[in-house]
Amino acid sequence: MRTFLSLTSLLLRGFFSACCLWSAVAMAAGDGMLWKVQAGNGTVSYLFGTIHVDDPRVTTLAEPVIAALESAQSFMMEVLPSNDVSPYYMQGSLAQLLTEAELEQVYAAADFHGLPRDMALRMKPWLLSMVFDLPVSQSPYTLDVQLYLQAQRAGKAVEALETPQEHFSALESIKLEEQLQILRSVLKRSQEQKEKDFELLIQAYLSGDLDKVAALDSELTADDLPAGLWEKLRVKLLDERNVRMAERIAAAADRQPVFVAVGAAHLPGEGGVIDLLNRSGFNVSPVK
């Protein structure tokens, strides 16, 4: 499901790397995605919109992003990397839930991604949908992970905007049959189409246009899902989490300079993190 490229956690790649041993462009990632967040007391923090992939075109950071990270006392991201894989496995097996034809598609996709078939059958359908909808992993280090490691190396305090339980609750709220709908929609799409859509998202991100990223993300996902299911996902994955994350960013940014990395689709529009921070008394402005 394409929307997860910018809505879900880098934990997906960390899990995939641990279990499976798994040309910068002229415009470096970060142009248009970095925002200055000034509190009423004058404290300056930064908000950076990310995309949770390992493509080298987005993991090459612009100088203003590097400088903003260096200036902060602490670093915040959606959820911290973890070795706990329990949220990813289901009770039972997909072998009892899919047709023979669908299982053959799962096996082919698992082989393509270097994922053991027995592991694929035990993974929750929402996770398998994410894995199958992405290009083959090039590295375990997504943009978010690189920022996290850089902050650690610089000795900065590292915090999460959500607990693992909060982070996964949105996905866990999706009924099994709805998860299977998402998986089936991904299985129907060709690898060529997946790669084409992925490239559209990368180019939108590199353009620095937050509204374009959010609109494309929504459009690509909504095309494949029943309207009711997409609306439910949007509320759970975006709207509800935006409120929680904005509250925690505000509390941290009132105390000290902080660098916050969060999926770009969470930032724009009414009810987005930028709007919520402005309404909380912060002055949020783009870094040119």
Rank of each mutant, 00 (worst) to 15 (best):
L180F: 11
L94M: 09
A24S: 12
L238M: 12
Q193W: 09
A151Q: 00
D111V: 00
Q193R: 13
T59Y: 05
L216E: 07
Q73S: 08
G208T: 06
M90Y: 10
Q91K: 05
D224Y: 13
K232H: 05
A251G: 02
I51G: 03
L97M: 14
K194R: 14
R234H: 12
K175R: 13
A215R: 06
K232A: 07
A251V: 05
P81F: 15
Q146K: 11
Q146W: 07
E162Q: 14
W35C: 02
R234F: 11
T3P: 00
A62K: 05
R117L: 09
M123I: 08
Q138I: 12
Y88A: 13
D217K: 02
R244L: 10
M119S: 09
E162Y: 02
A120G: 09
E219P: 00
M123W: 09
Q105I: 01
T142G: 14
E247V: 02
L12C: 08
A252Q: 15
K156Y: 15
T142R: 03
L115G: 06
Q152F: 13
L180N: 14
I202M: 12
E247A: 06
A170R: 01
R13A: 15
S6P: 00
M1F: 11
A251M: 13
R57N: 12
V284K: 12
E172G: 03
A252C: 11
S93I: 08
S71P: 00
L277S: 14
G92K: 04
M123H: 05
P140R: 01
A265E: 08
A214Q: 11
L69V: 09
R2I: 08
D144W: 13
P116I: 00
G14F: 07
M33Y: 01
G271Q: 04
E199Q: 15
P135M: 01
E270G: 11
V44Y: 07
L128K: 02
K188G: 06
C19R: 14
G32K: 01
M1Q: 15
M76E: 04
A108E: 00
I182T: 07
D55G: 07
E102K: 15
A250T: 04
S185A: 15
M27W: 02
G30Q: 03
V273R: 00
F15C: 04
L143F: 15
Q203T: 12
L21R: 12
Q193N: 08
M76P: 12
S82A: 06
E178L: 02
A250E: 13
W230R: 03
P164C: 11
R279K: 14
V136R: 10
A151F: 15
F16L: 14
S185E: 10
L200W: 01
F168G: 05
V37A: 09
M77E: 03
M130N: 14
K175T: 11
Q165H: 13
D239E: 13
L34V: 14
F198E: 01
L161I: 15
G42P: 05
G92P: 00
L206S: 06
S86P: 05
C19G: 04
I249S: 11
K288C: 04
G281D: 06
V258P: 14
A110M: 03
R248M: 06
V158Q: 02
V258Q: 05
L180A: 09
S17F: 11
L61Y: 10
G14Y: 04
A18E: 02
L147M: 13
